[in-house]
Amino acid sequence: MNRAHPKGRPIPFPRLLSVETRKLFDTRAGMVVTGILILVSLGAIVGRGLVTGPHWHTLVGTAGIGFGTLLPVLGILTVTNEWSHRTTLTTFALEPRRARVLAAKCLPPLILAVAASAFAMLVAVPVTAVIGRVQDVSATWEVAPGALLAWTASNVLVVAMGLALGMLLLNAPAAIVICLSTTVVWSVVSRLGAAGEALAGWLDLNTNAASLMSGDMTGDDAARLATSMLCWIAVPTAIGVVRTVRREVS
């Protein structure tokens, strides 16, 4: 039985965080996306290992294919589901300070990105060892710790982008389409001459995050990444927060 919250006292943030974390996985869409994410990650790691051999770092990075597609979707669903299901009235009635609710909604997907990265690293260990034994070759385990941290950070960035677009649009289908089509769009833009190439070079978050994962980021690379983060994460998040806080709920 849920304990009633004392009237007049603010709801503790840990309780809000717990509730929003449960919402992330309790919905049908959340459970389906999470299940697919696990299966795709496992399949990608095993399949890549059978093809390329027991190279642990390579197998870990292979999981990023599914992460880059499905983790942002979970972030988008987290901040848009209640608007589409019209349950925001109840949520904001129980906690009128909407900024706290948004913070509690955004933290679980970001933490999930870190957990998913750690999951891929752990799964790749036995897969690498078994494939090395089956193929009778020496497994490759060498990897710079900074490369793993950078890869994890890139997964967090794509989730942050999904959250930002979700808060900005408050419409899951539109945010998902934009989020998943950016790679193709920027690829086309980069082929539109020098201006298009320059624009994509500064604003394509996925490409600029790749320089972070490479481990040899220069000052110019850092400036490009910061610019794309400002465009796709900081500005949409700020506008989305203002829009959510001021929007009428019916």
Rank of each mutant, 00 (worst) to 15 (best):
P10G: 04
R86I: 08
D220I: 07
A129S: 15
S211T: 11
G132P: 01
L169W: 08
L59N: 07
D221H: 09
P126N: 13
T21G: 02
L122P: 13
G49W: 13
P126V: 13
L157T: 14
A113V: 07
A194P: 12
L180A: 15
A195K: 08
F119H: 05
T62E: 05
P173W: 14
H57E: 11
L17K: 06
L169K: 04
V158K: 05
A129H: 10
A144H: 08
E95Q: 03
A29D: 03
L230T: 14
H55C: 09
C231D: 00
C179G: 13
D220T: 05
I178S: 03
T78P: 00
T80P: 00
V73S: 04
P108W: 05
W83M: 00
L59I: 10
M31K: 15
N206V: 09
I45H: 10
V156W: 00
R86V: 07
L50V: 14
G49V: 09
G64I: 03
L148R: 08
A222T: 03
P14A: 02
S18P: 01
V101G: 03
R246S: 07
V101R: 02
L199P: 00
L122W: 12
V158H: 08
M217W: 11
V19G: 02
V245C: 06
D136Q: 05
H85M: 11
W56G: 04
W151I: 10
S250G: 15
W202P: 04
A223V: 05
G68E: 06
V114K: 05
D204H: 06
L107H: 06
W232P: 01
L89F: 07
I131Q: 09
F13L: 02
M229L: 14
V46C: 08
A116D: 00
L42K: 12
G75H: 05
V242D: 00
V33P: 03
A44Y: 14
Q135V: 04
A200P: 02
G66Q: 14
L165N: 11
S154Y: 09
A194S: 13
R133S: 12
N208M: 07
T80S: 02
E95S: 04
V185N: 08
G8E: 04
R3D: 05
A153F: 01
G193T: 04
M217C: 12
W186D: 06
G47F: 07
D220G: 09
W186Y: 15
P109I: 11
A234F: 15
T218A: 11
A116E: 02
T128C: 13
V241Y: 00
S187E: 09
P10E: 03
A200C: 01
V60E: 10
G53N: 13
W151N: 07
V33A: 05
A129R: 10
V249N: 12
A113T: 01
A147L: 02
L94N: 01
V79T: 04
L24P: 02
L89K: 00
T128V: 10
E142K: 06
L149D: 02
S211D: 10
V189I: 15
K23R: 09
L94A: 00
L149Q: 02
G75T: 10
A63K: 04
S228F: 05
N81R: 11
V184G: 15
P54A: 13
V137D: 08
A63E: 05
T227W: 06
G219D: 14
V235P: 11
K105M: 01
A4C: 06
T34C: 09
A113M: 01
